[in-house]
Amino acid sequence: MKRVLMICAIITVLTTVGIVWVLFSESYTFFQHVSIWDFLTDTKWSPVSTEKHFGILPLLSGTLLTTIISMAIAVPMGVTIAIYLSEYAPKKFRYYIKPMLEILASVPTVVYGFFALTVVTPFLQNYIPNLSGFNALSAGLVMGIMIIPMISSLSEDALYAVPKSLREGAYGMGSTRLQTSFQVILPAASSGIIVSIILAFARAVGETMIVTVAAGNMANLTADPRETVATITAFIVNMSTGDVPQDSIEYQTIFAAGVTLFVFTFILNSISFLIKKRFQEKYD
């Protein structure tokens, strides 16, 4: 029996091997046509135009732009909510509010994309005249809302793990809840909170449907959140919906884009894993 179970566990390894193999083998063919140098430094991305460019920078900038906007919403809000729920709110309130926050994370992302496109963008256009119909801002903001519960719940776990005796020590010296939270509890839980932020960042980088629907599909090297951009993920989706012949260079671009995304998220996940491991050992 043990062997059967082990084979099932090994499927997880095979999945990783499969991902790495698929991404790298297809990209390998790609990089025989396009030099890695061009890929990393060319400032244009136009794989299907007549004048082809294969510079990943515009896609990376689009990805980072939407990600940073989302984090600007999700990190302060998520950490604040975590502190509020763990240090301020009554137990009962927490019991009822947490499942409601989880609903936010359970809504399919294509639905969030629809929300960004049909509600948030028209609303923002009232105040920001030059806002494109597809733009990084709406997509990033809505993505931020989606990610809030991820940060708040992981951070709350970290805050909750701080021994009660530290709280008592701080209160016993006349600290307010705010001082206790920010000067004692938060520093003690910092590694757990950093992990939650990194994981959320990785999630935002890999998020697909919101940006595909609401941020557009125009590879655009810009830092202006009002403009239409394309993220790595949006490019892959749009390329996949078109009719691209197999084994063409255009087809291989989605794997080259995919490998970039994978390396990016892999690094982020590894960092968070290492921090978590060290953090656990400290407390054991």
Binding site: P163, S165, A170, Y171, G172, M173, S175, T176, A188
Partner: peptide
Amino acid sequence: EELRKKVGMVFQKPNPFPKTIFENVAY
């Protein structure tokens, strides 16, 4: 908060803050 400044407390388990010795006392 004022009350607790006047009435100090020491707990069962030593519970220094994860800060330096100096900062603990200066807190």
